[in-house]
Amino acid sequence: MILYGIFLLSILLFFNGFFPISKTPQSFKNDPPKDMLPVNDTYAPVVSKLVLVVIDALRLDFVNSQLMPLTSRLSRGNGCSNNVSVQTPTVTMPRIKALIAGNVPQFIDIVLNLASTEQLKDSLIHSAYNSNKKIVFYGDDTWLKLFPSYFWRYEGT
């Protein structure tokens, strides 16, 4: 009986460790209180249009190489590059979640990657959509499963 109890406890510990229940906050961020800061000046947009290029699984030393004339324009102020490293377990959907919402990838995300639906409660996409920004998207259709109704135009591959 004791062995059975230990076995059951170890099974529970295993599933709790590798497949934890998601603790994603169920709330959206609120705008900063207008009585504290001059938010219209502090958060005034610097640019009118933004192009976000996500290149999955690309070595950063290729991008920064002097032999890459197009990407070297980044260093001339026409854009900025950011290297995002996501720890294993990692497939496309948890990578997108980590990038857009700051979620920490879990093992269960690998299973959910195949049947991912709109699950995020707050993200950069939600914030931009709620600010009446028109977002167009081209690329991996995992984005379309995560954000099925947030894009002005889109094409998934």
Partner: peptide, 27 residues
């Protein structure tokens, strides 16, 4: 490379009625 997607991205660059464009490529 999906040339249809590339063509549509080039169209978007000309149309400019959007505020944010997201492109996701596989390196």
């Amino acid at each position: 490379v999906d040339h249809n997607v590339t063509r549509n991205v080039l169209k978007e660059i000309e149309v400019k009625d959007w505020d944010i464009m997201i492109l996701h490529y596989l390196g």
